[in-house]
Amino acid sequence: MFSKIAFPIFEQSINDYHQFDNVDQPVNNPFSKDKIEHLLYAKNWVDTVQWHYEDIIRNPAIDPVEALVLKRKIDASNQVRTDMVEYIDSYFLQKYSNVKVKDNAKINSESPAWALDRLSILALKIFHMNEEATREDASPEHRAKCQEKLNVLLEQKKDLSTAIDDLITDIENGDKYMKVYKQMKMYNDEELNPVLYQNKK
């Protein structure tokens, strides 16, 4: 089951990040570059850094200039996240390229990698909600509410993991087929974003 490979790697990345909890710390990916584990770790590391970017930029006392710099970093991070998802989908496309697709096979609403993207974010939600549910300086009411939310997130993890594993099994068996569309994000592209290409004139 692929989710049983992916989720512990996401957890490892999150735990490694929180050893220093610094958005500028270098990534130290422990997996060989030719392994899917390397891609999964790298994907979650980008998600984890961006999670903390999003926390920082919501500081009401943030300097506007710093906020603009951070917004640029978030934009760049979003592009990297999208690229990482497409790399992971390329892995699945290659792995199952020789599968004979059945005549009645169906396409899924999202690719395996985009489902794994949601699982990566879910791992972050679980980590941080657990922090809140066990925070010693929080009120008992706060901890109880966060524990309730954590229980829902853990149930969601179970359901999403099952759905991912079922999708990959269906692709392996030819019951579903992959068709990947590049995201074609426009806002970072100097040829597609009117604000950017008009300023080039």
Results as ranks from 00 to 15, higher is better:
Pro140Thr: 01
Phe127Arg: 14
Pro26Gln: 07
Ser139Arg: 09
Ile171Leu: 08
Ile57Glu: 04
Asp63His: 09
Val65Ala: 04
Lys200Gly: 08
Ile164Arg: 10
Pro194Leu: 15
Lys201Asn: 12
Glu66Asp: 03
Ala123Val: 01
Asn193Trp: 07
Val195Phe: 15
Gln94Trp: 12
Trp45Thr: 05
Asp175Trp: 15
Asn15Phe: 07
Leu150Gln: 09
Thr162Ile: 13
Glu155Thr: 02
Gln25Arg: 14
Tyr177Val: 00
Asp189Lys: 15
Val180Trp: 04
Ser13Tyr: 01
Leu154Val: 03
Gln25Leu: 12
Phe20Trp: 09
Leu119Cys: 03
Glu190Met: 13
Tyr91Asn: 05
Leu93Ala: 15
Ser97Val: 04
Tyr53Cys: 06
Ala115His: 14
Lys185Cys: 04
Ala61Met: 12
Met1Lys: 11
Asp175Asn: 15
Pro112Met: 04
Pro8Cys: 03
Glu190Ala: 13
Met186Phe: 08
Thr82Tyr: 13
Lys43Ile: 08
Ser32Gln: 12
Asp165Tyr: 14
Leu192Val: 13
Asp16Pro: 03
Gln183Tyr: 11
Lys33Met: 09
Met178Leu: 13
Lys102Met: 04
Leu150Asp: 10
Ser13Lys: 00
Ser77Tyr: 11
Gln183Asn: 12
Val46Arg: 04
Ala61Pro: 03
Gln25Ala: 09
Asn188Gly: 07
Gln198Ser: 08
Ala67Ile: 01
Asp63Trp: 07
Val27Lys: 15
Gln147His: 12
Arg118Val: 00
Thr162Ala: 14
Leu116Cys: 04
Lys179Gln: 09
Pro30Val: 03
Asn173Cys: 05
Asn29Met: 05
Val49Gln: 07
Val85Leu: 11
Lys201Ala: 06
Lys4Glu: 02
Ala133Gly: 06
Asn98Lys: 11
Asn130Phe: 05
Phe92Gln: 13
Trp114Val: 04
Lys125Cys: 06
Asp21Ile: 08
Asn28Asp: 06
Asp34Met: 12
Ser77Gln: 06
Glu132Ile: 00
Ala163Met: 10
Ile9Trp: 05
Leu93His: 06
Tyr177Gln: 04
Asp34Asn: 15
Trp51His: 13
Met178Ala: 07
